[in-house]
Structure formats: structure tokens, C-alpha cells
Design a protein around this nucleic acid. Structure first.
Lengths: 336, 336
DNA sequence: TCACCTAGCTTAAACGAATAACCGGCGCCG
DNA sequence: CGGCGCCGGTTATTCGTTTAAGCTAGGTGA
């Protein structure tokens, strides 16, 4: 039951609880936190808890973190590549698991800023840890964060030795896709690299993986925008300069656009061209032919990832050891 | 240039800056905040700023908000429906605009919890505002938030009078889709309602919109899971009990699954069945036939939404007035 | 009888930043 | 020459919480 505070001006504090329960604020703190080693009898404890409930007390996270010097925040920096269902589910699950460990996961929204500027905004919240794409954790940013007591955690690749990283093996994903195409007898493989500045680097890593897989086969690079028009242009160019017999589409979305453009051009998939995407999005099951895709099979449960983050924060884990959380895995469907 | 703090134990504070610049912390505060009405000469100002730069100073958001009583945080509660590209772009843009106004937008990750429990977690951060789906802002939650000094902002629909809301007119979206199908001559329309507990309610509102549009035509409700298997089941049932000539697919994803299942069953779209989705995702351009979809045309720019939020926080806007930010708009393609 | 212990609290000092109130010295005016 | 105002700062208090240290009453052992 929440009774209305008469003044309405100020949220109730531990002082208000103390006054109502006729004890000191220290006692209130001991009771509310159930501080180990405290010696508060059941009767007093009940009085305090009742007063807190009556007043609708909510602890003041800032005051607490100011006093204790640490905060329970884990900052997830909004990835530049929009949060797909995969990433969203990962975020949601991680939030649950971290909450169970006493942390609060938060997504910080400023997809474009990086380096010192971004790190300053993150560090102002004095989070326990900051999870951000590797390319955004510049050395300066890492210094700022560690200086502010936050553990940096790179997504994708560590910006330098000693910085913990949740690796997502882009090269390995490209390699998995490339190996499959080779297996299917492809000898002329086109690998899509997106033109958008942010994802371009990922595309190049995946291209490198494809190239590594294709021992004898030809591998050519094809740059593309993420629009239906550009997909049509790419297919038209292929028709003119020689159609590849295998396409690694970088992404399910790029592959989906290409699939549409190939259909429009009357090119048979997989008969004439075999097509592979990446991410294993639900989209794959909607397209006809269904899209073969390189998915990420979890090696670590989200709970294990959360536990590792907690260990990094408390200093119990080796920061230099990269965390392999996923492994590329081919999901074969009809497009190849 | 950031010099390494010798002890590495504690992030630099204003006290450290004060010592280095040989002034008091008050002076440091006046300089760093450029407090209006302060009278600090240029020379001293430079000394302080140089010291701050040298030490790599980052303000302590908790300490500041504890002292001032307000925080610059705007909390966006993670929607239960995974953040699609549309929502993600909205979030990113809002973060930018709010930052320009001095606020920090943050996504709080606990998609399932609601009511008092969720509100408690949000209120602990003493944010300036909390944006959450209407159904999660129970009256208790609203009381808790306003008690903690936070402005609640409902997404979708206000939980009760007087609570500000960013309305997304689900009923209108269904109506727009339904009207289009009627226009195309459909007389037997099936409207999909998802079975997942969270989005079910949205589905029912959209269904109501379809029903409102179809004056003479028959409108039937079809429940469906978001899986390819269930889409196949739905199509099989239709084949048995009579195929509708128009389908409002709730969502582009549900519509996409249905489109695939219809193709598998040899049903011609749009010849035999006309199909309409909602959200206007990029997916629509990948499918063949391309998917007609009801999109959300912005009536307010993201900047205007941000400005409105700021006005609500400062008390300059009427909380009771719902904010119409989007308007349903049909994007006709080949599937209808 | 008195030292000593323990349960059950309270007191008080932080944490980092903001800010109202004050203060010494100099210039200027009447 | 006394007082006022302003420049360039400083001092001290406050926000809500945690936590080490202390304190009191009652019990216990020697």
C-alpha cells in the first residue's frame, strides 16, 4: 500500500523511514540491505520494512553509488548496426542474467560517437563495465574508462592487447560460408562487401574468410549498398561481366535483396547461382527459395557470459583472455 | 593529453583539479559548468581547464544529480517486442536529439517485468522521464515514478487520463490495411492475431481496425504463432475451410511467413489472395511478390518529440494531451 | 564487586559536486 | 575620509546512503 506523501515535493528517503519507524538511518540501512553481521531483532526489522513499504520507498541509486564508490550499472553502447532480433534477444537475456548477479544493464544510445567523446559520456555514469564495439574503444577511450573504474569489454575484437573482448569471428563466418560454396562445386564466388562506413570493415573480414576458404576457386569482391536498386545494379553488372556461380551475401538482408534481384532477372537460385547469407535471421525462412545462412551457435550461455562479466568486474578473470561466445554454424536451406 | 594518475585507484575529482590549479573546488565548479553570473577571469579559467584536461577529468553524474536533485537521464524501457529497425532508428535519433537538449537517453533492459516491480527499478535511477509501453505503466507504477520525480510517458496508449502518451494508432493501422483490401474488392478478409502474450493485445487492436473498415465484408480472426510451421498450418486450414481473398497479416514478419506458406501451397498472391503487412520493413522489398505494408508516417520529427519530452519534464507541456507522432500510411506493392 | 561481553542500537564521517553566503582588498564617489 | 560596490575568489553546507566506531543496558564469570 502506497500512501501519498503530503508535500509531494521530495521522494521518501531513508531518513523518512527512520523517523516513521523511530530508529536511526543506520538501522534502516542495515535492515534494507540485510547487511551481513548486523544484529537487528525481528521486531525492529519488521517495523522498518513496514515503514518503507508505507512510504513507497525507492533507494536512490546515485546516492548509493556515490557512497560505495561503485555502481551496479553495466553499459551496453548502442551498436551502429541496428539492433537486430538476434542482438536484441542477446541484450534482453544478458539484462536478466546480470540482474540476477546484482547488476543493471543499460543501453546507451549514441551510435555514432566514438573515442574520447563517447567514453567521457559513458564514464560520467561510473558504470561497473562498458560493453562496446571494438572499433569504438580507442586506446584513449579505454584509458578513460579504466581511469573511471569501469571495465571495458570489446564486442567483436579487442582494440589492443589486454582489453577483454567478446569475439565474434567474422573471418570464420566468411570462411564457413565460402567452404560450403566450394563444397557445392562453386568455382567463381562473389563476396558482397557493404559500402556503409560502419559495417564495411566487418564485410572485409568476412570477405577475407571467404578468400581463405577458396583454395582454387576465384573470389571476387562486390561492393553494394543496402538498397533494392543497388542489388538490381549488381545483378545487372554480373549478367554483363559474367555471372558468378556462388555468392556470399555478407548478410541475410543483403542476400535477401540479391535474391529478389536475381529472381527479377530470371536467374535460377540455386540452379545457376548458389547464395549464402549470414546471421540466420527469421527472414531466411520467409524467402523462397529459403535462404542458406551462417548462424552463430552459442558456445557460452548468456548466463556464462554474464558471469564472466561479473568476474571481470571483480577482478577474478583474466582480462587478456578473449571470450569466444559464438561459433559459426551453417544452416543449409534451399538457396544453395 | 591524459597523464596517468599515479595511484590509479580513484578517478580524478574536482578536488584534484582544484589542487592542481591552486584554487578551490567552488571555482572549479564555476569554471567547468560555466555558471551564469560567475566572475572568473580568463587566466584562472584557463588554468582550471588545463588541469581538468591533464587529469582526464570526467564529471561524476551520480554526485551531480544527488546534489542538484535532478538527473539528465531519460529512461526508455526495453519494449517487449524486439527492437526492430524502425524502433531502433527512432531510439537512436531520439538519443541524439535529447543529448542536444542536455539529456541522456538510456534503454533499460527488462522486457518482461511491469508494474511496481519494474517502476521501482526505473525510479532507483531517479530519471527525468521514463518512456515505456502503456501496458507496463500501471497506475501503481505511474504513482511510484511521479513520486520519484520522473515524468512517465506511455508508448502506444495512456494507462489512464493525465498520463502523457506517445500514441501509435494500432486501430488506425488495421483500418488502413482493411480499407485497402476492401478497395481492392476483397469480401472475405482474415486478420492475423499473434498468440504471443505481449503482442496479442496490439493484434487485437489492429483486428478491430480491420473490422471497422470492412462494412459489408466478412472479417474473420486467425490466431497464429510466429513460426513457419504455424504459417503452414494456417494456410492448410484456410485451404480446407475456405481461402480468404484478403489477408491482413498483423505484421510484415507474420505476413512474410504467410507469403512463403502460400507460395508453398501454390496459392497465387495477389491473384487469389491479397496480402497486407504492417511496419514497412526493408523485408517488404526482398520478398517476391513485394509486400504491401502499412507504414508509420511521422507527423512529428524526432526533434519535435524530444522537445516535447523536455517540455513535459520542465512542466511546460500539458501532460494530458496525447502526442500524435505517427500516422498510418499505406505502401502499396505487388502483394495486393 | 567489578571487569568484560554482547545485543541493539546511534553517531558521525565520508562520497563528489553545486551553490548560497561570505570576505578581503581595491577603486571610486560624495 | 568613510562608505559602497565590485572583483576574485573561498567557506561551508547540502543532497541520500553506507559503514566504521562508539555507546548503553543488561547479563555473566571470577
Amino acid at each position: 500500500m502506497i500512501t501519498m506523501n503530503a508535500t509531494r515535493s521530495r521522494p521518501p528517503t531513508m531518513g523518512d523511514i527512520a523517523a516513521r519507524a523511530a530508529v536511526s538511518t543506520a538501522t534502516v540501512s542495515y535492515v534494507l540491505n540485510d547487511t551481513p553481521g548486523n544484529r537487528i531483532p525481528e521486531e525492529t526489522r519488521r517495523r522498518v520494512l513496514a515503514a518503507a513499504e508505507d512510504l513507497g520507498y525507492v533507494p536512490h541509486a546515485s546516492a548509493r553509488s556515490l557512497r560505495t564508490g561503485r555502481s551496479d550499472l553495466v553499459l551496453f553502447a548502442m551498436p551502429a548496426t541496428t539492433l537486430g532480433p538476434l542482438a536484441a534477444r542477446f541484450f534482453g537475456g544478458l539484462a536478466d542474467e546480470l540482474r540476477a548477479l546484482g547488476y543493471t544493464l543499460i543501453l546507451h544510445g549514441d551510435p555514432e560517437s566514438r573515442g574520447a567523446k563517447a567514453a567521457r559520456a559513458w564514464a560520467a555514469l561510473r558504470p561497473a563495465a562498458v560493453i562496446a564495439e571494438g572499433r569504438r574503444l580507442t586506446p584513449t577511450a579505454v584509458d578513460l574508462l579504466t581511469g573511471a573504474g569501469a571495465v571495458p569489454l570489446a564486442l567483436g575484437r579487442a582494440p589492443r592487447r589486454g582489453v577483454p573482448a567478446l569475439v565474434l569471428d567474422h573471418c570464420g563466418m566468411g570462411r564457413t560460408g565460402g567452404l560450403h560454396l566450394i563444397d557445392q562445386g562453386c568455382t567463381d564466388i562473389a563476396a558482397i562487401v557493404p559500402r556503409a562506413p560502419v559495417v564495411k570493415e566487418m564485410g572485409e573480414e568476412r570477405l577475407a574468410g571467404v578468400a581463405k576458404a577458396a583454395e582454387g576457386a576465384r573470389v571476387r569482391r562486390t561492393d553494394m549498398d543496402g538498397t533494392p536498386e543497388d542489388a538490381a545494379r549488381v545483378v545487372a553488372e554480373w549478367a554483363e561481366q559474367g555471372m558468378p556461380d556462388g555468392v556470399y551475401g555478407y548478410n541475410d538482408e543483403y542476400a535477401g535483396l540479391l535474391l529478389g534481384a536475381l529472381a527479377d532477372a530470371g536467374v535460377d537460385v540455386p540452379g545457376r547461382v548458389r547464395l549464402v547469407g549470414t546471421d540466420d535471421l527469421p527472414l531466411c525462412g520467409m524467402l523462397r527459395p529459403r535462404l542458406t545462412s551462417v548462424g552463430a551457435r552459442p558456445l557460452l550461455s548468456i548466463g556464462e557470459v554474464a558471469a564472466h562479466i561479473a568476474a571481470l568486474v571483480s577482478g577474478d578473470a583474466d582480462p587478456a583472455a578473449p571470450i569466444r561466445a559464438w561459433e559459426p554454424e551453417l544452416r543449409r536451406r534451399e538457396s544453395s
